[in-house]
C-alpha cells in the first residue's frame, strides 16, 4: 500500500530574528521522515522549537524546505508552482489553531467557507451557496450561520467553520495545527468527535499537530514525537503510549498531567530547559537533558531504527532514534 503522504529527509532553516552581518539560522527541521496512510490520522507531538508546525507548513506548501521531499499521492510537491500547486492544494487543506485568527473578521462565515470553491471556480454561484449550506450542516451548524461574522460565534462554532472551510474543496488530507488548543475542554471534546466522524464518513486523513499528548493519544492511529527538529520516536498509537522507548518520549509522557487522583507529581520528569533551535546541541539533540546519556551521545547522530519484532504489513513499525536504549543489532 503506498502512503498518501511521504516526507523524506526534510530540512528547513530560517534566518534567526534580529539583524547583523552574520545572522545565525534557526534549525527548524533537520532531516525528518514521516508517512501517512489514506484515511489515517498521524499525530505529531512536541514542545516549543520541535519543528512540528514547520513540518505542517511544508506539507501545506506554505514553506519551501531547504532540502528533502514531500510526496503526496505520488506527486512531489516541493518546488511546485502555479496551477500544479493549486491542484495539490485542493486536496490538502489546513485547519488552524486560533479559530478567530483563521477567519477573516470582515467576511461572513459563508464567504470564508466558500473561499476555496471560489478559488477553484467550482460550480455556479448558486451551486456554491448550496454547497456552503451542506458543509455547515455537515459540521453541525445551521444554514443561517452563513450570514454571520466570526465575532458573533463562540470559539467552538468558529472552529467548526474552519473545518467546514477546509472540507469545501473535498480534500484527501487535512493538516490540523493545534486545532483544539484554544478551546475549553467540553468544546474540545465536541471538535475531536466531529473530526473523528468526518474521518469515518469521508475517509479524510489527518496530520494532527499538537503539544497535548492526551489529545494526540485520543485521535491518532500513528504518532511521531519530535524534539528540536527531529523525530525521536514513531509508532502505532497503542505501541507508543503503552511502550514508549525513547527517554524523551518517556519523560514527556510522565510530565503530562493526567486528571486522575493518583496521578500526583512525585518527581520532575525532565530537568533543564529546551535548548534553542538556533544553536542546537551536537550529536543527539536531547543529550544535555537525557538521564541515560553516554559519552558518544554528544558526537553521534542517532537515526530512527526499528525496535522489537517487525510488524505485519500496513503497520508503522515502532522506530526509535536512540542507540542507548536500543543496542545496535547485527
Amino acid at each position: 500500500m503506498t502512503a498518501l503522504l511521504d516526507v523524506r529527509g526534510l530540512v528547513v532553516t530560517f534566518p534567526a530574528p534580529g539583524s547583523g552581518l552574520r545572522r545565525k539560522r534557526v534549525h527548524a527541521l533537520s532531516g525528518v521522515d514521516l508517512s501517512l496512510q489514506r484515511g489515517h490520522t498521524h499525530g505529531l507531538v512536541g514542545e516549543s522549537g520541535s519543528g512540528k508546525s514547520t513540518l505542517a507548513r511544508c506539507v501545506l506548501g506554505l514553506q519551501r524546505p531547504d532540502d528533502g521531499s514531500v510526496v503526496f499521492d505520488g506527486t512531489e510537491i516541493v518546488g511546485l508552482r502555479g496551477s500544479a500547486l493549486r491542484d495539490i492544494r485542493r486536496r490538502i487543506q489546513p485547519v488552524f489553531q486560533d479559530p478567530l485568527g483563521s477567519l477573516d473578521p470582515r467576511w461572513t462565515v459563508g464567504r470564508s467557507v466558500r473561499e476555496s470553491l471560489d478559488a477553484f471556480g467550482v460550480g455556479s454561484p448558486a451551486d456554491r451557496e448550496r454547497r456552503v449550506r451542506e458543509l455547515l450542516d455537515l459540521v453541525g451548524l445551521s444554514p443561517d450561520h452563513a450570514d454571520r461574522h466570526p465575532v458573533q460565534l463562540s470559539g467552538g462554532q468558529r472552529q467548526r467553520v474552519g473545518i467546514a472551510a477546509a472540507l469545501a474543496s473535498g480534500p484527501d488530507l487535512i493538516v490540523a495545527d493545534e486545532p483544539v488548543s484554544a478551546l475549553d475542554v467540553s468544546v474540545q471534546a465536541q471538535i475531536l468527535n466531529l473530526m473523528a466522524r468526518l474521518q469515518r464518513d469521508l475517509g479524510v486523513a489527518f496530520l494532527f499537530v499538537s503539544h497535548d499528548l492526551s489529545v494526540v493519544e485520543h485521535v491518532s492511529s500513528e504518532v511521531s514525537v519530535m524534539y528540536l527538529g527531529k523525530i525521536v520516536e514513531t509508532a502505532d498509537r497503542a505501541d507508543l503510549f503503552a511502550d514508549p522507548v525513547h527517554p524523551y518520549t518517556r519523560a514527556l509522557l510522565d510530565a503530562v498531567p493526567i486528571p486522575e487522583p493518583d496521578a500526583r507529581l512525585v518527581h520532575v520528569p525532565l530537568s533543564g530547559d529546551i535548548p534553542s533551535p538556533i544553536d542546537p546541541p551536537s550529536g543527539c539533540r536531547f543529550h544535555p537533558r537525557c538521564p541515560l546519556r553516554v559519552d558518544s551521545c554528544s558526537r553521534e547522530h542517532p537515526v530512527l531504527t526499528p525496535v522489537g519484532t517487525l510488524d505485519s504489513a500496513g503497520h508503522t513499525p515502532h522506530r526509535v532514534a536512540c542507540p542507548v536504549v536500543l543496542p545496535a543489532r547485527p
Partner: peptide
Amino acid sequence: SQPAAHHRSGDLPV
C-alpha cells in the same frame, strides 16, 4: 470530556 480519560478511541462525552 477529558481525552486522557478514554484510552480507546470513540466519541468523547460532550
